[in-house]
Design a binder for these strands. Structure first.
Lengths: 154, 154
DNA sequence: TTAATATTTGAATTTTGTTCGGATAAATAA
DNA sequence: TTATTTATCCGAACAAAATTCAAATATTAA
């Protein structure tokens, strides 16, 4: 028999946690570094006001959320007048599969870190990128094993 | 006159937030996706028990915490019997400046993403890496501009 | 169909975050 | 130096959120 998934909350949580919807554990930090929790609170607020903290988020075991395939992609842009690397990079960064996007110095213009379920899904994403106006060529480096991501050991 | 910083809590917070010491905002998520907060709680606990979530952490504006210099480093290992790439990668990952560490398929064996205050600091880290037994050569790609990191837009 | 398991939910409890005011320390100006 | 302003620290009171619990409902397995 076919059932409608009860609420199917898991994927919604994953989406939210990728970019935020977390918050500091003031009490735990206060205990850890042996200061008053109000002092910790004050210092965190200051960091946030300075803009030093962009988000509080979750780090996943990506294999367990169907994003186990990870690739570093270099992109070379076509050299022509009026081309805007920043604008193109914003296009790349918009994809939810793109974990990071940087402009580089040197022979390659851009590096992207992309996470997908598998090679097939990766190819679809890459195809979209290659199709964009301004992309001359790309080269991909497939990650065989990840032992640290986002400063977190796996 | 010279004063001792009162408590100097900021760097301690940054160190803790890089790897954890955060937690989900259950009430906010519940409101966002219009479910009972206890339902959200239940689903998050399940994700954690599955091991799908490795940590809750902060994402920084790295320029503002003196880690504005970012480099992708490829490492090639010396091909010899008994060499263990995994062991060497663990050595690399141990550095706090290393944001991510992966084993690659292809011409390069390892890619590291490294964050430091500036080029001088970066050179010190790289020197340590090059000094390790088993490293044949490296090549670095300097990030000129970061627009997305850890799935967070900057 | 029945039994076992997983998920959802509200009420009660516990824990945590936040505000506020005053104290202390540091930086700045006189 | 000394006076003044600003930044940081921290306890008490309060507000908000997380967690536990028990029961209802949905799903899966037998």
């Amino acid at each position: 028999m076919l059932y409608s998934n009860m609420k199917n909350i898991k994927p919604k949580l994953i989406r939210l946690f990728k970019e935020g919807y977390c918050t500091p554990q003031i009490a735990r930090i206060a205990k850890k570094i042996k200061e008053a929790s109000t002092t910790i609170h004050y210092n965190i607020k200051r960091l946030e006001e300075e803009g030093a903290i962009k988000a509080y988020k979750a780090v996943f075991d990506y294999k367990k959320i169907d994003e186990g395939f990870c690739v570093f992609v270099f992109v070379k842009l076509t050299a022509k007048k009026g081309a805007d690397p920043d604008k193109l990079l914003s296009e790349f960064a918009r994809y939810e599969e793109v974990e990071s996007a940087d402009i580089l110095a040197g022979e390659w213009d851009i590096i992207l870190k992309i996470r997908t379920k598998d090679q097939d899904e990766y190819y679809k994403v890459l195809k979209n990128i290659l199709a964009l106006e301004g992309v001359e060529k790309t080269t991909s480096f497939i990650s065989l094993k990840q032992i640290k991501t986002e400063f977190v050991m796996l």
